[in-house]
Design a protein around this nucleic acid. Structure first.
Lengths: 340, 340
DNA sequence: TTGTACGCGTTATCAC
DNA sequence: GTGATAACGCGTACAA
């Protein structure tokens, strides 16, 4: 735990710092005895190379930046978990920033990241972000970037996403097969890639079964719980309330379930529901909730692996054609969700 | 965004690096014109001081380490949120480590932290941790440390906790006043300070109302959901099932609610329940759940403020007597929890 | 007012 | 096989 440096070792052993350095790194041919002596002394005094000095020398921080909309969101905290696992194994710091769904804060985060000299960036876009010029600029300056979950077509780099189209398609199809026809999709910011893909999957499923698309059944909604509940109340106050619901996030599912409970609308008897959710709570409390489980942990791991590969490879050997990796989202149907 | 250094500015302006440095820091008396020139150039080329070089020079990393049992736990992700807010405002990095409730991993984290040269440490102990010698050693070597939530008597430094005794006392009293007598407390690792305090609060409330303490109604339980449910099933299979429940964490509350739901035991008609919870989901899905809300965000903020004060103060001026700051936990009783 | 020299911890290069 | 030196970027004591 002591703050011992290579210089201290050199002094103590009457050697030069360069000899000590070589002994420790074992690179050059060196007198085995000297080497042994140095290594023993280092171990005894718990020598640890100063990562800051190394960073300065190598012009690398051995840290990666992560920008997420909110840490306090089960999906993202699970992703961070995955990132964390990979990064620490490979000797990297993870520095986390939150955009709080604000484009402005995303820009500020980027500024912080660059001045902190992170070696690479993992980012999931804010709900407000419509242009990714800020990322492109950074990317062109040589910063390795991997986008995950909420990505953009407009930047050419690696991306890791879940198969949102397929997830929404399967979920919608499940509802249709259970006999539902008036299926509402409750979704988030219309700017997000995940939103667009999920809406497309939903529409494709309706089309497949010849159900006309009713635009009023696609509801875009912010994350504010009160707003979600208000929208839901509205939806169920009309003459023709939905008989099926597809929600695409934890918070949306919760607001939705809360309103159903309050109105004593029972699942699955009166209405069927599928939620994209990462919250273990949801299905425990509402066993009839069919769930599209996001591969959050895996997404974090894959993204981090990709980014670290990009960072550690020489710039000239970075593959010219970036790819989008799609991870499988599982649809989990529980017995109790089948209509009695 | 460019990687421009002080040296580049000096070269471009035909000045020495020291002049540029002074101009930028504005410390020394310097020719106003030169100063203006330098600052303009710096702004134009987006100069940012290299934090790594500064760290090396000042022997400070301007980063703080945070060790939590799990990131993916709503209480801790909220605490991290609070830490984050304060730290970034004051120009510090937050480096997060997870102990995964393992003492061994806590030790490894500590090792990483020190070799990473963090300026200070915020830690909430793992469920396995019984001795804090590892922390004491580090603390005696001069590392500023603030413990939060799960603390230890055996180390003398600042601590930030919520009032667990009071929280459990109030919760238990609430149950008693609703007419419950067989109140079970379902709690976590017996080693944790929070567990002991909550058990004490529970016992004190029973004593106040002359209810004998039944040791079999204090259940220690791991975080594994399956184990929680098994324990609950056991509890409710006996001849005299509880008529009141106090759970002290989100996961325990969830496992508990899941079993009640499965056995069709209704709240509050058949059983009353209070949970320590930070999960917005819980009360939404079960409105009859009375909640002890932990001041998680505030805890993060207070802890970070304390730690940064410790770090930035000269060692000689650190107050010799460390304190434990208790934050208030609010008991939230919703209408629907009153027995009909 | 400005420039020179040094040190923070480490490694690479060159010399011995 | 080992030691001296320079360099990474910055701030500052000291010299001019």
């Amino acid at each position: 735990m002591e703050l011992i440096t290579i210089k201290d070792i050199a002094k103590a052993l009457n050697l030069s710092t360069s000899t000590v350095s070589r002994a420790l790194r074992g690179s050059y041919e060196i007198n085995p005895e000297t080497k042994k002596l140095v290594i023993e002394y280092a171990e005894k005094h718990n020598y640890r190379p100063n990562p800051i000095a190394l960073s300065l020398k190598e012009n690398k921080s051995r840290s990666i930046g992560v920008i997420v909309p909110e840490i306090d969101n089960p999906f993202f905290s699970q992703v961070i978990n995955g990132i964390d696992a990979i990064a620490y194994n490979r000797g990297y710091h993870v520095v986390i920033f939150q955009s709080h769904e604000s484009y402005k804060r995303e820009l500020i985060n980027l500024e912080h990241l660059t001045s902190r000299r992170v070696d690479g960036l993992l980012i999931s876009l804010s709900g407000e972000t419509q242009s990714v010029e800020h990322l492109q600029e950074l990317h062109q300056k040589g910063m390795p970037i991997v986008l995950f979950d909420r990505v953009s077509e407009e930047i050419n780099t690696h991306k890791v996403v879940s198969d949102n189209f397929e997830g929404a398609f399967t979920a919608t199809e499940h509802l249709i097969r259970e006999g539902r026809r008036r299926i509402v999709q409750i979704t988030a910011s219309p700017f997000l890639s995940i939103t667009k893909e999920r809406v497309n999957g939903y529409i494709a499923a309706l089309n497949k079964y010849g159900i006309p698309v009713d635009e009023s059944l696609i509801r875009y909604c912010g994350y504010d719980l009160a707003a979600i509940e208000k929208m839901m109340e509205e939806l169920f106050s009309g003459d023709t309330p939905p008989d099926g619901i597809l929600t695409v996030s934890d918070r949306l599912a919760l607001g939705c379930l809360a309103v159903l409970k309050r109105r004593k609308i029972s699942i699955p008897e009166q209405i069927a529901m599928v939620g994209f959710t990462n919250l273990k709570a949801a299905y425990l409390l509402e066993p009839a909730l069919t769930t599209v489980v996001q591969p959050s942990l895996e997404m974090g791991q894959r993204s981090a692996e990709l980014l670290l590969d990009l960072i550690e490879r020489k710039p000239s050997s970075i593959p010219p054609n970036y790819q989008t990796f799609k991870l499988y989202s599982e649809l989990i149907v529980r017995e109790s969700s089948v209509r009695h």
